[in-house]
Amino acid sequence: MTTIQLEETPHLAYLLRLADSALINAHRLSEWCGHAPMLEEDLALTNVALDLLGQARLLYEHAAAVDGNEWREDDLAYRRDAPQFRNLLITELPRGDFAFTIVRQALLSAFFHPFWQRAQGSTDRALAAIAGKAEKEVAYHLRHSGAWLVRLGDGTEESRRRTVDALDALWSYTGELFEVDPVGEAMIEAGIGPDPETIRPVFEQTIDRLVDEAGLARPPGTWMQSGGLRGVHTEHLGHLLAVMQHLQRAYPGAVW
């Protein structure tokens, strides 16, 4: 049995949400390696993936310290099952086409850039330090994915259709970004995590600017998906974990 069990305090659960979202997002982006529409984007998308993987590592390392047991970052990444993952659902959806990947990254970056800016003032000093690094990285992710979103929306008939489809498919997954459950409340209370409501106007302004420049409109839908934060996932996460965790599950403790 290689699966570990954790006693999730609000603080640990909160760090796992951030770490898991970064890791799963990074994994989906890494699936483009060798498959992107052009060499330049192959490099660009995997650069973003590596930034996010770096953030995930720092967050897991910090989570392991907060947990206080013997688990290391690799145990947290490779030895938990899908219901124990706390990532946002939007990060686990299959990579789709290039437009889908770009729109997902723009939505995530439009949220996480102001998120990390605010998290630099966290009372959790380690999280504040991670935020300082992540903020610069995500600023570039937003610049890159935003630039492509505008050009795809304002590009050919096909690129526009694919971008509209991606926006429609992904929009209902943005509600989770702003979800505040008891864990979130405790973190806002303790000054560890920013209140997502303070981020909403910045997020909406960014998305409105991008879709406007792209000649598109923000999808009207108001019904939102939910579940990732409490471990209720889409059917896609299990398949992703099977690939991502295979080596450590088959050969526990394997190292390079």
């Binding site: 330049e40 490099l43 660009a44 610049r143 890159h144 050009r151």
Partner: peptide, 20 residues
């Protein structure tokens, strides 16, 4: 050199390709 649809994305592509 890089391929890109316009100057702005060419800068991004250059950053991602040559300043890693």
């Amino acid at each position: 050199s890089v391929h890109a649809p316009d100057a702005g994305l060419a800068l991004d592509a250059a950053r991602d390709t040559y300043t890693r």
